[in-house]
Design a protein around this nucleic acid. Structure first.
Lengths: 133, 133
DNA sequence: CTAGAATCTTTCTAATTGCAACTGTTCGAG
DNA sequence: CTCGAACAGTTGCAATTAGAAAGATTCTAG
């Protein structure tokens, strides 16, 4: 039987490399890593809570991050059409532009560069299966 | 071509599940998640720096975590035999005992439970390849 | 042998993150 | 209807984490 603990370490290691990659992509810009991830996830309008879910962090933290993105003029808090409690986060034109620039920067020197096309597909399949539970 | 961004999200998601798993394993004990991970990694004596490397955190943070483990009587800072700058972290008898108990708790309901033996080996092989570069 | 660069740890400080309480809104049972 | 429970978001506060500076030791070029 394989060692589940070692497998977890490998995944943690890769997640850490991904995090490092994000940090290297934002170094030199005026964005923090958290802000960049938020921007990345905002390809479609989301509520605060939805964004928190995608970022795996507390909603109070999203309040903080979005505050700063809004000050930078990249995101707007709009009233939610159906639910007056919620807010819809939408990118400004500038936000859209910075997002596409960011994503193109993300896509070079990916931590998965050592894997060829077939391996990436195989990895994707295995990860989906592991997460499906 | 597969979407590298989505692959990264899958890995992050799995890493997050692993983190949640650790937290659920330590809830009810007097250990924090960081302390538990430190304990897990101390299967062999390590220096502060080595432990920081395995925990993916700053060395100043390890000082903090080890301080508390030492107060709990689970770890001892011993002078390093070769290098008087460094310290060797070794588990006490109580530390060893808590470590094995912790690891056995880690091994039930693993986030990788949805994968059978073959899949786990395949995943391990792919992760190693991705990390090898 | 020795001076300077590098390394290991700690301390101090700042930034990030999570938790609990609170406001305002929606939902559902009666 | 309407009242209480549930939920979205914010705020204040505490805890975790990282970064930079400093002290002690080791390494290395000359």
């Amino acid at each position: 039987m394989t060692d589940a603990r070692e497998l977890c370490s490998l995944i943690d290691e890769l997640a850490h490399r991904i995090d490092e990659h994000v940090r290297s992509c934002v170094s030199g810009t005026d964005l923090t890593a958290s802000q960049a991830i938020a921007l990345r996830e905002l390809g479609e309008p989301l509520t605060m809570r939805e964004l928190a879910g995608r970022m795996h962090c507390a909603t109070s933290n999203v309040t903080f991050v979005v505050d700063r993105l809004e000050k930078l003029g990249l995101v707007e808090r709009q009233p939610h059409p159906q639910d007056r409690r919620a807010k819809t986060l939408v990118l400004t034109a500038d936000g859209e532009q910075q997002r596409t620039a960011l994503i193109s920067r993300f896509s070079v020197n990916t931590p998965l560069g050592a894997l060829d096309e077939d391996d990436q597909q195989a990895l994707s399949r295995l990860l989906r299966r592991a997460l499906s539970e």
